[in-house]
């Protein structure tokens, strides 16, 4: 043997092999843990996305009953509704809408579903708020995308223009029990010739399932820590051995405390 064993050889001493195995196992476990949590994050994102757009259109009554609050699973949900539009004079323009770079209004109309219950429906988009167009006569069936009611409003003005779709405000103006949310129609037949209002981007925020994403990063940080510890322990062991060999002690009779079994 040379005066000093080659460093490489020392790294593969039998006493260090256990450490190498442990490091591989720990790294594999951390990698798997990270992938598992990343998968959980993807699944949550996918689930959320499905909740928003990739679900089949079902009749409104299957997902929402009069009197129920608007819960998160209803957000952006496509449903079909059957009902009768209230008189054209009950329609409302919602200001402050932008579509294709054009400022304009939503045409909002109450759709009477059953009894007193009505759903506010955005029929279409118009650059100007004039005389409200006529409503389709009789019972109609249309598809809408459900949206939660909007925030504070300055109220309905004399021209029947309101700045937000705030249901508690509109409930005082219309003779119906309104659902606490509204639908954006995707049925051109009821749009009175107007372009359909664009439904909001159903983008899923990257923060949905953030906890799983953080956990997966954590696993990888642990893996990096395990790799660092492995490297450091091995290096210290090798250095200790080299130091002992350099000292050229008469024998190994005096073991270094930290290396004794």
């Amino acid at each position: 043997m040379n005066a000093r064993s080659s460093t490489l050889r020392l790294w593969f001493r039998p006493s260090l092999l256990g450490l190498h195995v442990l490091a591989v196992v720990a790294l594999a476990a951390c990698l798997a843990g990270g992938l598992w949590q990343l998968g959980a994050y993807d699944a949550r994102q996918e689930h959320e996305r499905a909740d928003r757009q990739d679900v089949p259109t079902v009749p409104l009554a299957e997902v929402w009953s009069p009197g129920d609050p608007f819960d998160a699973t209803l957000n952006h949900r496509p449903v079909s509704v059957t009902g009768t539009f209230g008189p054209a004079s009950e329609q409302v323009w919602v200001s402050g809408r932008t579509q294709d770079g054009q400022d304009g209004f939503w045409l909002l109309a109450p759709l009477e579903l059953s009894g007193d219950d009505a759903l506010l429906v955005v029929r279409g988009f118009s650059p100007e708020a004039g005389e409200p167009p006529a409503v389709p006569a009789g019972e109609v069936e249309l598809d809408v995308v459900l949206e939660p009611g909007e925030g504070s409003s300055a109220g309905l003005d004399a021209d029947r223009v309101i700045d937000t779709v705030r249901v508690p405000t509109l409930v005082n103006e219309l003779p119906y029990q309104l659902f606490p949310g509204f639908g954006i129609s995707t049925t051109p037949a009821v749009a009175a010739g107007l372009p359909l209002a664009v439904t909001p981007d159903p983008d899923v925020s990257w923060t949905v399932g953030l906890r799983n994403l953080a956990y997966s990063l954590q696993w990888w940080v642990f893996g990096a820590f395990a790799a660092f510890m492995w490297w450091r322990i091995c290096r210290e062991q090798v250095e200790d051995i080299q130091a002992r060999e350099q000292e050229r002690a008469p024998s190994d009779a005096e073991p270094v405390a930290s290396l004794s079994p």
């Binding site: 450490l19 442990l22 820590f225 510890m229 450091r232 322990i233 210290e236 062991q237 200790d240 270094v256 405390a257 930290s258 290396l259």
Partner: peptide
């Protein structure tokens, strides 16, 4: 705590089994 243990292990020259 893990970081503190790692620093201690290095300073006191612990055996790997002790550290882990």
């Amino acid at each position: 705590l893990l970081i503190l243990i790692a620093v201690m292990a290095s300073r006191y020259r612990w055996r790997p089994s002790m550290t882990i």
